[in-house]
Design a protein around this nucleic acid. Structure first.
Lengths: 234, 234
DNA sequence: ATCGCGGAGTGACCAAAGTCACTGCGATGC
DNA sequence: GCATCGCAGTGACTTTGGTCACTCCGCGAT
């Protein structure tokens, strides 16, 4: 663990999932769960593997994704510090339905299936919290299905840009500036398409005057226009 | 309720979700949950509506689906007797992410949010069971995403036929006979496309000798060929 | 400096998905 | 019997998605 990094105990204390536990319980859980460090790209668990337990992201980011036979990837979720990952196979004992890998240098706590079950049985509030977390995940998956089933790549790209703009865009006099920290490849995996289409659609949006693309810096010039485009696409 | 139909009490007793409750608890729950009857096509709850509680299908079938602006539908799940529907917004208090409607004449029990929370807190086993149910649902959604993101309509149609054949196909000397109880429209909504493509792809599969289509009766002549087709489609 | 490499841009192409408009069929109701 | 209606099939077409094969650029290592 890095110098000055929080102890497992401190992390558990601030994890929403375990908010209901008291000091003693937290301490006992902290003793039983291991902390692991992953380098960028390293796999935490693979699709189809038997599920062993749940991870809690301490630092860094974890990418949950599916891989197709021909190598394409579809990202299902990106989780940062405090979030739990792979909660669900814990309770139905099956295999992981997708893979999880560290996007950047990442630390994560691992809580075993057995420990979790014990906690849920003893502190039902934890189980309820868990249901809430899983519920949120379900919502996001339904959203992905909706986008994949009903919309075009262009639409998904615009949605992504707007979301990203709201989340970490910098306001400037010309518009909202987004600095891409992901490659087009990665962006494509997130919106469910291939690199080339991301490139082409960005170019097209620029030609239409909605954006200005400068390497990995995208400036949204006309965000109202983009939003309008979304709803007009019937 | 129809003559001879089971009482709420009896239904709850056989619902896996509540297997952990004892007689007294079942009785008290039965008192508090209402049974409703829905005619074919009737809506149980609509997307975006504030969530009120959970439904347990007693008889009939319920279809969970999303609707797009231009009227297309994407089916997320079909649930029959014993299954619960709309479990998840119960625990995060949000809106229903999709709509639910009766496919055919359907009876369902309704359990309120508050009652459920109380039960989960008192009987943690119920919460665990619930997590298991939600987990299974999550798995299915991931499967839908995988199919939508990676495969073609043809592929999805073949998968559907194979699934359906295994689930309710009749063996005959010529192959496996499936009698469609859904329209092409409905089938299209289940595999995420439009009516015309279902029609065309069925015709194409027939022309290739994999199937024989006779109105609403489809005979799978070469199921090995179909399976092979699936994996060859890279 | 230059070699190699990964990311990005693009033209040419092809296949799949979706739209529109129409026909035909078979139930159901009057 | 005939009109109506919903479902199914299909031809013609457009748009979108995806593939392939390159080129170009910037950067870090040698």
């Amino acid at each position: 663990m890095a110098q000055g990094a929080p102890s497992p105990r401190q992390i558990l204390k601030t994890t929403p999932l375990f908010a209901a536990l008291d000091e003693a319980e937290l301490a006992s859980l902290a003793d039983r769960c291991g902390i692991h460090s992953y380098s960028a790209g390293e796999v935490l668990f693979s699709e189809g593997e038997r599920c062993k337990g749940l991870y809690i992201v301490v630092s860094g980011r974890v990418r949950i994704f599916k891989t197709s036979l021909n190598g394409r990837e579809q990202v299902l979720a990106l989780e940062g510090p405090g979030a739990s990952v792979a909660e669900l196979p814990v309770f139905d004992g099956g295999d992981y339905p997708a893979s999880g890998a560290a996007v950047e240098k990442t630390e994560a706590l691992f809580v075993s299936r057995a420990d979790l079950r014990a906690i849920c049985l003893e502190k039902p509030e934890v189980a309820l919290k868990m249901l809430q977390v899983v519920g949120a995940r379900l919502r996001r998956l339904v959203g992905i299905i909706e986008e994949l089933s009903f919309t075009t790549v262009r639409h998904r790209l615009i949605s992504w840009l707007i979301r990203e703009g709201k989340a970490k865009g910098q306001k400037s006099d010309r518009g909202i500036v987004i600095s891409l920290d992901a490659s087009h490849q990665e962006l494509a995996a997130q919106i469910g398409t291939v690199r080339e289409l991301v490139s082409r659609n960005l170019a097209r949006l620029q030609a239409q005057g909605f954006l200005e693309v400068n390497g990995r810096e995208i400036t949204i010039l006309d965000s109202d226009g983009l939003e309008a485009d979304l709803s007009s696409m019937v």
